[in-house]
Design a binder for these strands. Sequence first.
DNA 1: ACCAAACTGAACCATCCGGTTAATTACGTC
DNA 2: GACGTAATTAACCGGATGGTTCAGTTTGGT
Lengths: 218, 218
Amino acid sequence: MEDGHQQAKPRSWKQNPEAVKADILAVAREEFAEHGLSGARIQKIVERTKSSKRMVFYYFGDKEGLYRAVLEDAYRSVRRQEGELDLDGLPPEEALLRLVEFTFDHHRANPEFIRLVAIENIHRGRHMADMSDLAELNSVAIATLSRICSAGIAEGVFRPDTSPLVLHWQISAMCFFNVANRHTFSENFGGDLFTDAAQDDLRSGIARSVLEGVRLRR
Amino acid sequence: MEDGHQQAKPRSWKQNPEAVKADILAVAREEFAEHGLSGARIQKIVERTKSSKRMVFYYFGDKEGLYRAVLEDAYRSVRRQEGELDLDGLPPEEALLRLVEFTFDHHRANPEFIRLVAIENIHRGRHMADMSDLAELNSVAIATLSRICSAGIAEGVFRPDTSPLVLHWQISAMCFFNVANRHTFSENFGGDLFTDAAQDDLRSGIARSVLEGVRLRR
DNA sequence: ACCAAACTGAACCATCCGGTTAATTACGTC
DNA sequence: GACGTAATTAACCGGATGGTTCAGTTTGGT
């Protein structure tokens, strides 16, 4: 016990900035999704990381920088998933049905992302201002719907004033609410709507409402 | 500068527990709605109050107690507003239309409440567990819709499997989303949908979708 | 061999925050 | 008007938190 000398801990490592950043980002995403911007603790994040607190500030500047990176990353990866959906060639009604089903399932499968978006809305979208390249990713979603609408209108099955943006809004609204508000809704009205069976019904219900809302009746 | 003696500051005041509580609650509601549970600062709340920090803990125990009181109070006052809507005697389709319009306008007019609910969902509804008497207030909302549904089904204008709870879910979803997610939605797709004119269209669109979703076609 | 960039680890700090202590004032009641 | 309790105030505290700095070591490319 005489030696205060710190032994030559090898502490060897590989240089891999991207992996370190990705590691931090992944853990931070969970923490922010769980506790929000102010509720998240940087300490808690680094504890679950192979990295250190020092590196967080080294790469992301400050807490908000990390949060912004998390948000941007989440948006990007989610939009990439969405982009993989291919509805071309389907009849418009069928395409719309599929889109609703996909969105519904997708949101259900990604509650973490939903929470991040909800949190960002609490912050009034303040941190999304400079995420420039999201615009193109978003336009893809609308473009798909635009094609569906045009086809539907041309075929005379959709109302001529059908708006892709409004359609997207309606679909998003219900699919988002289903995940984001399930807790208060359950607390208020019971959990009956959140069993697997009921969720299937809910999904068809959304599809029907959205579809019947734009259907042209002769 | 020789005297450390504190002069006899009169510091006179009136005893008025209810007013003090109400004062704190009102300010706290704004602060929590703005910054969330963890983001809210008790100090900031007290600064805008005629009261002191000590009183917050005196009356509400701790920060979470205050938050819970705020949430409960907000729910109660909002449900009271909703309860004033009277739709009895209207034909079912008309009643449903009115309910959608009312809910849409109501949510738009109460963004602070919407934010509180969104925040509580981030906390997974943890703080609503013991708000016992909300159940009855909620059941009122469903009861109204139940009557509308029964009438609609009886008259043969609604599908026989129409569920009041699902209807409420759909209406809530879109009206809630419209306020809660307007920031990220605007950031992603522009603010076109949030002008007064577009909001009117959106509102009719919701009404149409909801209505056509339950309408029985012969 | 050399150098910039990546990385480590621990100490440090100012600030802030929720919560508490202790004393003072108001007020109903007997 | 004395007394006890509830209401209210000012000052204070321990701990945690975001963020910084020091003092390096290791890696990998040239």
